[in-house]
Structure formats: C-alpha cells, structure tokens
Design a protein around this nucleic acid. Structure first.
Lengths: 226, 226
DNA sequence: CTCTCGTGTTATGTATACAAGAACGCTTGA
DNA sequence: TCAAGCGTTCTTGTATACATAACACGAGAG
C-alpha cells in the first residue's frame, strides 16, 4: 500500500501482520468480530486480499472462521490454553536439549547476551522491555537448536500464546522468578547437560501455563460479572 | 459442487482435501506446478476458491507459494525432512508419555485393538493395510494423550510427512521391526511407564526419519541422473 | 404478553473482469 | 551462429459485481 517494501508481496504480509499485531497486543479482543468490508476500507484495499489475510490468520489459529458466519478473534478456553502451554513446554524443552548438544560459539554468545539483557531489563524493573528481551531470549534458544523446522514451529506457537504471555508479567515477582529459571536453562545448555536443560526449559513454560490458567479463570469470572 | 455434503463449506473442504490427497498420494509430485486456472476448470469452480484452498495448503506447508510465480508442491530437502522427523518424534514421545499417565479404559481398548489390527495386517503381509492400520494406531496414541491441541498438531505434522512415510514401507523388513516397536510402546503405556513410553515412541519415529533421509538422498540422486 | 413465522437487510462466498508482472520467444545485430 | 533487447502472451493479484445464506426486526396469532 505504502511502498515501504519493494517486495511484491509486501502488502499481503503487511495486512496480515497488522491484524495479527492488533490481536496480539489486545487491540482486538477475543471473540471480537472481524468485518471484511470494514477491514478492507480501513486498509484501503478490496475484500479479496482481506479474505486471504484472514484465512492465513485462521490457519495459524489466531482467528476462527465459521462458514457463512464470519471471522472472530479466537477464543481460547482455559483447558485448551493449558494444553497449548503443555505443548509449548515440550517444544522449548526440545530446543534447549538440542541446543545443549549443538551449541555453536555464535549461539553461545547470543544466548549469553540475550540472558544479560533480560537481567538488565529486570534490574530496571522495566516490564515492557523485559517482555521484549524475554522473547528474544526464547528465540535465541529456538535457533540454537539448529533445527529450523523446530524453531519455526516454536515461534509459531510462541506467537499464538503471546496475548496470554503479556498478561502474565502483571503477576508480582514473576519476572524475578523467570530470570532465575533462565539462569538454570542457560547454565545447563552451556554445560552440555541436555536432560537438565530440557527439564528446566519445560518447567519454565509449564509454570507459565499454570499461572495463565489461573489468570484466565479469574478473567473469565470477571467477564461474567461485568 | 456435487451436493455430496449439505454443509455449506463442503466445497472448500472438498477442494482442499482433493488437492491434498493428490499431493500426499504422490499423484502430484514434489516441485510440480499448480495452475490455478487448470485446477479451477478441473473442479468446475472459479479461481477464487482455488486460491483459498492453495493458501490453506501453503499454510499447512504442503505447497509453496512464491509471489507472482505461482504455487508448487513443496520440495522438502533431506535436511529439512530430518528436522521434521525430529520434531515428529518429540511429539509422538510426548503423546506416549501423557497417554501412559492418563490412559482411560476406552483409550486402552482402542490402543490394543489398533495394535492387534497392525499385527494382523503385518501377518498377512498386506503393506497397504498395514499403512492404514499403522496410521490408526498412531492416531489412537495421539488421542490417548488427552491433549486435544497436541493431538491436532501431531496429526498435522503426521499428514505432512505422509508422502515420505508411504515410501518407507517398501523397505524390506521394516514392517516387522515397526510392529516390534509398537509392542514396546504399548507395553510401556499400559504399564504406566511414562519415560519408557516416551523413549520408545521417540525412537520409533527417529528410526523412520533416518530411513527416509537415506531414501530421499538416493531419490534425489536418481532425479539428478534422469 | 410471548412466541413464532416471514420478510428485509447485511455479510459472506463465488464468479468475472481488469491490471500488472514474469516467462517465453522472436527479431535483429554483430 | 549466438547473444541481447524487445514485445507478446500467459499467469497471478486485485477489484467489483452478483448470488445466497444468516440474522434481526416486526407483525400477527395464541
């Protein structure tokens, strides 16, 4: 639309990313309806590319498309959320385990850097920065697995869980605990202790899943009240 | 198109499934071009639904869409294939581990039945039947994990690996070995030995991955020659 | 007063027309 | 004869028009 990218597919990516960002950041809330005409008008395109973007989002699980009844932002039940975190934990654990065996010097540096930045953000009490650096840290671990397919799948699921992850930083003391868990993961990976790295990474996510489930349950309760 | 299903979305699903089946069964070979107009004509619809189906297939990874250059059946490199099997192994292991902890009476019965049917097919030397029953067996394990999201992801990846899985049955003695591995998995799950179940299931897939990588390498070699 | 049925409106699904880029071949020159 | 440049043609990407299903609102009957 705005020629910000010479790549011919820039528009489609832009449109998809824009809607995705709005969902992930919470600008579009769960269950909210996504009107094709409205989106088309807002982005200055016709319904056709909008529909394609929505289908892509549906494929990634961020939205649900009910035939003849339009698209809505996916409403994830607490049960399903727990399941998703369970899988995320396994993927993270796998990444950590593989990383501990295959760690290159580059990945080692990247890992230490990302960990240090997390610590800095936590030290300054900057929740938003920690959120960002935490994401970088996890992506570094994914890449360090030296399994591109795994990394892509991990990022996909990570993105899908983003909206819930963001909520979690509100929990008092979570950042401090999170840093300590990162420390254990990093140490195990650097020491080449695959099993330990896997378990620490798994636990790190499982804990988040449990916290989120609690949060979700309470949020749902609030929704019912309001 | 043919009113074989009153559901309004039947056409889209049918179209997607049809193309997917052709890819999975090898009717459409890797790298082959998918012409929108041609597909539209073949299925008696316009390009619009064809494009949507292609986008869905691209999202699931079965085809690749290069901007302005059309869609081709995804060409998976041996490296990438090994990576995918590595992830599949982890998911299968996870399913087996969870199943061993959460096994319901229903799932137990289904597991034993599926295993028995595999044995029968193997006993009769019916490779096609074994292929089918083997798939059922794995699906039973996925479901027994009592994690619907995990099961869905496992099925998704399983489907994506189908074309390669099919090739693998050609390997002499593979079916017998496969059955023995199933036996170990079933026993561990029934005994509630999570770690053992996970490891057996993982190994079961890792072995396949290695076999397939060998096959792929030799097939690619043949391609180059021809 | 409530429930149900019917009609009108709105939005989705599909078809078709148009725009633009990429592949291919042809011509022309060396 | 070969290579390079240009134009044609074919295919994709987008817009728009039309068909049809779902929803909402209102009227009428019980």
């Amino acid at each position: 639309m705005r020629g910000d990218n010479p790549n011919s597919k820039s528009r489609a990516v832009t449109l998809r990313d824009a809607v995705e960002t709005e969902i992930v950041t919470g600008a579009l809330k769960a269950g909210e309806r996504l009107d094709e005409v409205q989106l088309a008008a807002r982005f200055g395109v016709s319904r056709t590319p909008v529909r394609e973007a929505l289908h892509q989002l549906a494929a990634s699980g961020l939205i649900e498309m009910r035939p003849r009844r339009g698209a809505v932002v996916a409403q994830v039940s607490p049960d399903r959320l727990v399941e998703m975190f369970e899988v995320m934990a396994e993927l993270e654990g796998m990444c950590a385990r593989l990383a501990s065996r295959r760690l290159s010097d580059q990945d080692k540096e990247a890992l230490l850097l990302a960990h240090r930045k997390c610590q800095e953000a936590a030290h300054h009490g900057d929740a938003d920065k920690y959120y960002y650096e935490n994401e970088r840290f996890h992506h570094v671990v994914y890449r360090a697995s030296r399994n591109q397919f795994l990394a892509a799948e991990a990022i996909r699921l990570h993105n899908r869980l983003k909206p819930y992850r963001r909520l979690q930083l509100r929990i008092r003391g979570r950042i401090t605990t999170s840093i300590a868990e990162h420390e254990q993961i990093v140490t195990a990976i650097l020491d080449g202790q695959g099993a330990a790295a896997q378990e620490h990474a798994r636990a790190h996510i499982v804990i988040q899943g449990e916290r989120f489930a609690d949060l979700m349950a309470s949020l749902n309760h609030l929704d019912e009240v309001s």
